[in-house]
């Protein structure tokens, strides 16, 4: 496998700064694992794709970090980068929240769509960004995903969707709910034209996104420990009046219950996707 380990051999722990060294490092140059507390140099942290070498926690990536980690350099063409919501319901405090997240992420909304190559294989790609309004789905997310699926259908490209979402975006009310219908119909059209849909569940994928395009891919991969589910844990516990097991709604839970094909370590993902794309090349099939 030529692709394996392109991304970064494990470094020795010698690179972990000592308490003393940490104090001398200017802020912004180190990152702390939120799960185990280990501290890493920024460079190593990003080389590890934000997977903690100590405890294995897969920390969240931004949409562009994900694309950079996956798509061949200079091969990415972004679709609809300037699409924005109009705040159609004039929902209280929504504008302020949007502006804050736009400033924080540099995105107009919670998804980046486009096409590029992965180790030379052309593909369409959709990446939801959990740092923008928890990647909740409103009109922009729904529209961009539907358009991306249509583009992929017309250009006969496979589609890889990195899902992440807190669910439907409350501030756009029923318009958000209808994006579930819109994206699911777009998946249906893509499917029926023979398109290959690969969904990769990342932490967290919940609510309306789980009940639409995310759950109807041809292949479902998931990052370790990613939260994947329809209803929230708290509301379920309130409803059934019992405590849920710790692994409830994790990627591993969904694997066990048949909703996910394979749980994949982030460092193995590019190699896996490359292989899957290769297995869907026309070679060996009748072309045209």
């Amino acid at each position: 496998m030529q692709f394996k380990s392109i991304f970064y051999k494990k470094k020795k722990y010698a690179s972990i700064p000592t308490e003393k060294a940490k104090q001398e490092i200017p802020e912004g140059l180190v990152e702390k694992c939120g799960s185990c507390g280990k501290i890493y140099y920024e460079k190593e942290w990003s080389q590890q794709l934000k997977v903690c070498p100590n405890c294995g926690t897969h920390h969240r990536l931004t949409a562009y970090e994900r694309i950079k980690a996956l798509i061949d350099e200079d091969s990415f063409t972004e679709w609809d980068p300037s699409m924005e919501t109009t705040d159609p319901l004039k929902f209280p405090e929504y504008q302020e929240k949007l502006k804050k997240d736009q400033a924080k992420t540099g995105l107009k909304d919670a998804v980046v769509t486009g096409k590029g190559t992965i180790n030379g294989y052309e593909t369409a790609i959709v990446v939801m960004d959990p740092f923008f309004r928890m990647a909740s789905m409103g009109a922009v997310v729904g529209e961009k995903i539907a358009r991306a699926l249509e583009n992929a259908r017309v250009e006969q490209l496979p589609m890889i969707i990195f899902t992440a979402s807190g669910g439907a975006r409350m501030q756009e009310g029923m318009i958000s709910l209808m994006q579930m219908a819109k994206t699911s119909i777009a998946v249906d059209r893509f499917n029926r034209s023979g398109g290959c849909l690969i969904n990769v569940f990342t932490h967290p994928t919940t609510g309306g996104v789980t009940a639409s395009f995310a759950s109807i891919g041809d292949y479902h991969f998931a990052e370790p420990k990613a939260l994947i589910g329809f209803a929230g844990r708290r509301i379920i516990e309130q409803t059934i009046r019992e405590k849920l097991p710790d692994d409830f709604q994790t990627a591993e839970f969904q694997l066990k219950h048949g909703q996910v094909d394979k749980v994949v370590h982030r460092h193995e993902l590019k190699a896996l996707l490359t292989t899957v794309l290769d297995l869907h090349q026309p070679k060996g099939r009748d072309e045209l």
């Binding site: 119909i185 379920i236 409830f248 219950h257």
Partner: peptide, 22 residues
């Protein structure tokens, strides 16, 4: 849709999604 343990184990999200697609 019912928020429950069995409902999640049996794929509540998938069931709704598949209906939309079909």
């Amino acid at each position: 849709a019912h928020p429950g343990k069995g409902a999640e184990e049996r794929g509540q999200g998938e069931a709704i999604a598949r209906n939309l697609m079909e």
